[in-house]
Amino acid sequence: MFLKSLFGYAPNHLNLYETALIHKSASKLDSQKNLVNNERLEYLGDAILGSVIAEFLYNRFPNQDEGFLTQMRSKLVNRAFLTELTYQIGLNNYIKSNTNNTAENSHIYGDAFEALIGALYLDKGYKRTREFIIKKLLANYVNLSEVQHTNTNFKSQLIEWSQKNKKEINFETTEHLSGDNRNPSFITVITTDGQPIGQGEGSSKKESQQNASKQALEHLKATEPGSF
């Protein structure tokens, strides 16, 4: 059984974990005609994960300041990192979704991971959840030294490039609404010298700008490698 091999023990309330793996696009109705998906568990898991990571980093780096700890926590809980972790532990094979929305797809796996943490917390309590995050996930799947020296703030990197090369860059972000107007997505186009160099989509303005900045940096490194 996947959950038993992942945690090292069998779950008590399997329904919690089943719900954690249901994306809102695949919501189902319960006996009371209520929609069942992982959004509430994701909310809870996000808070638990952030708390455990914050405490872990505080103890792991006793001589580092608040700014360093904040940046490290951000790297360890961002959607791209959690998505990669989801694939590493094999959780991606069990997630249920029915969406073709690019912005939503980019969140499905990270959201499910957080929901799994929420389910584990409700099922086994904080101590077991903390042990799983620190002793199973961080110890076996995370290279803290590598994370420490990885800059994932692509927008700041792009701005540094523009200042270094005296180039003006422009971010143009537009909002696009879904059919029910509940789940907007944002598309950012980045231009310099009047030419587009990057485009990105996300469920927030910030995420779309980060995705566009990442593409822009890849474009610039390929076309103007001497400018870095």
Rank of each mutant, 00 (worst) to 15 (best):
N143V: 04
E55L: 04
L6K: 01
A10C: 07
D180Y: 05
A54N: 09
Q148Y: 13
S27C: 04
I22G: 04
Q215G: 00
K214I: 05
Q71R: 12
L44S: 07
E160W: 02
K206I: 14
I190G: 09
R182D: 08
K205N: 09
S178R: 11
A10Y: 07
N98T: 03
F132W: 14
Q148P: 01
E160G: 01
I190V: 10
G125Q: 11
Q195V: 10
A26S: 14
N105P: 00
I133G: 07
P11L: 06
E42P: 04
E104A: 12
Y17I: 07
R60N: 06
F7I: 03
K28I: 12
T150K: 14
E207L: 13
E55A: 03
I89M: 08
R182K: 13
I117M: 10
E207V: 14
F7R: 05
D180H: 07
I133D: 06
K136S: 11
L16S: 11
F56L: 04
R73S: 09
R79W: 00
A115M: 06
N151S: 10
G198R: 07
A54T: 09
S74R: 11
A139E: 15
H149C: 02
Q199P: 02
I134T: 15
N37D: 14
K4F: 02
Y87A: 06
E42G: 00
P184E: 02
T223V: 06
S145T: 08
K127T: 15
E207W: 05
F186L: 09
E218G: 03
R40K: 13
N78Q: 13
N78K: 02
F171P: 12
G198C: 04
L177K: 13
L76I: 04
L41G: 09
Y141F: 15
N93W: 00
N101M: 04
Q71N: 12
G200D: 13
H176V: 11
I48Y: 06
E172I: 14
T99F: 09
